[in-house]
Amino acid sequence: MQRVAFMYKKVIKICNPKCNHMVDFQKVDKGMLSRICSNAKLNLTSSEEERFVSEMGEILTAFRELESVDTKDVQPAYHATEIRNIWRDDKVKKKSVDIKKNTEALENGYIIGPKLV
């Protein structure tokens, strides 16, 4: 819950997981959009920001029609069909391929990435 408060301080209420109905959400504003974009690693232009804030409100309001569906005691379907894991032997079968063929930044055979800390 601390994480929620940290990420979305402006949310008035959050959904109780035991509740089958959605509760009030604050309208998506530029501050919230900015926090989402920070998580999603996207920079938006100011015109994109304007457009997305307005569209997100409209889209999320439409999606909230699911509120009216009674899903009490219904299990979520993570997949549409029943899938059972099929084990196989952990043996190398395929020829090796050059996984760095598409990499531009290499040094001594290692892939170079940006600074982490």
Partner: peptide, 15 residues
Amino acid sequence: GFRDAYYIKALKVRS
């Protein structure tokens, strides 16, 4: 905070 209200709810509607 939103996952249950949107994502999990949608998975239940899929069921």
